[in-house]
Amino acid sequence: MTLWQQAIEDAVGKTRENINRFGDKFPHVGAGDKYILNDNTDWTEGFWSGMLWLCYEYSGDAAFRQAAGRTVDSFRRRLDQNRVLDHHDIGFLYSLSAKAQWLIEGDEEARKLTLEAADVLMRRWRPQGGFIQAWGEEGDPHNGGRIIIDCMMNLPLLYWAYGQTGEEKYRNVAVIHADKSRRFLVRGDDSSYHTFYFDPQNGDSIRGGTAQGYRDGSTWTRGQAWGIYGFALSYRYTKNPLYLETSRRLARFFYEHLPEDSVAYWDFDAPVNGETRRDSSASAIAAAGTIELLAHLDGTHPDRAYFEAALQRSVTSLVENYSTMGRPDAEGLLLHGSYSVRENKSPDDYMSWGDYFYLETLLRLERGIPGYWYERGQD
């Protein structure tokens, strides 16, 4: 059994145990070696649903299918109760739950729910400014003109909706937002801002900033990872070579700035000492994004061998040095993730998104199971 296979079997076994542990709750972040469990009210609940669908695709075990189906029912109720309107993370929530069910089973109700979710995300489009507002209500005095790099991972929901309906509005909004993100969130040295502020009335640029990073001008590693994967996915849907080039630039910066064990600290600019926090979830996201990037680089591309080697080193380190293999009672899959170091919120623990992208990475490497960001058969 290969290292990847061992890690997958360990992850699937832990996820099976977690079905009973979690019940109808959703794992959020760790606290004291246990997951904090939420109702379906935050931005992270889709990752548990996505893990259940991944495990079902891998194993065929009906227990995963039943649990995943219950999460989709929960997402149906959440949308009906209008509890998804104050942030942009609709793609994280519904791509990995309802859209996953559509991709795997062709369930028409799941497809309809996913399209409804795309319409909810469209309500965050601010035509005067030309962007998708990340957080808060329209007109929010602090966040009304704010975008964040995480949103690149929510755009695939809109691209997918265009492919399903043929309605140009979905694609147009996604492309405009991706172009603005590329221009203002990605810096000339291939690092990235976490957030950027615009005048909400006319879209004039104001300044870069951060909510999670070390300082406004630093490079928050999870944000850099979202950019790697998000721009590669925008390339998949649009074939705009600028998006692929942006993903490649972000990825090279990410790997060139890793420490010796090839797993990221929480911010590339944070002073490194014995207490500097890691973010294993950033490396898991970057690994999944690098696999997507490699899918679009042919064998003659000068960076292909570099990224293949970097990916191998990073995933091997995640499995050998950061996973909970050998700890059968562990609830999480990856140790040493960080949620918000600045606010001391779970700065060194399990992260539900880290677990999801770790499993997605392993399954894509070992079985070619690609996750739920695009329609099957596009490879």
Results as ranks from 00 to 15, higher is better:
residue 352 S to T: 15
residue 233 L to V: 08
residue 79 L to Q: 09
residue 229 Y to K: 13
residue 347 P to A: 06
residue 5 Q to E: 14
residue 188 G to M: 11
residue 173 V to Y: 10
residue 182 R to F: 01
residue 24 D to E: 15
residue 202 N to M: 07
residue 211 A to Y: 01
residue 155 L to P: 10
residue 178 A to M: 09
residue 351 M to V: 07
residue 365 L to Y: 00
residue 93 L to T: 02
residue 189 D to P: 00
residue 365 L to E: 04
residue 265 Y to L: 09
residue 377 G to W: 08
residue 326 G to D: 14
residue 227 G to T: 12
residue 172 N to T: 15
residue 213 G to V: 02
residue 59 S to G: 13
residue 247 S to A: 15
residue 125 W to S: 02
residue 173 V to Q: 03
residue 203 G to N: 11
residue 287 A to M: 14
residue 351 M to W: 01
residue 337 G to I: 01
residue 308 E to V: 15
residue 202 N to P: 06
residue 220 W to Y: 03
residue 225 A to I: 14
residue 241 P to K: 01
residue 57 E to V: 15
residue 164 Q to W: 06
residue 114 T to I: 14
residue 160 W to H: 06
residue 183 R to I: 12
residue 1 M to P: 11
residue 326 G to R: 04
residue 184 F to M: 02
residue 375 E to N: 05
residue 135 W to N: 05
residue 37 L to A: 06
residue 241 P to H: 05
residue 23 G to N: 04
residue 273 N to I: 01
residue 163 G to W: 10
residue 229 Y to T: 05
residue 93 L to N: 13
residue 220 W to V: 00
residue 104 I to M: 08
residue 351 M to C: 11
residue 56 Y to G: 01
residue 135 W to V: 03
residue 294 L to G: 05
residue 258 L to I: 02
residue 38 N to A: 10
residue 81 Q to V: 05
residue 365 L to A: 04
residue 342 R to I: 01
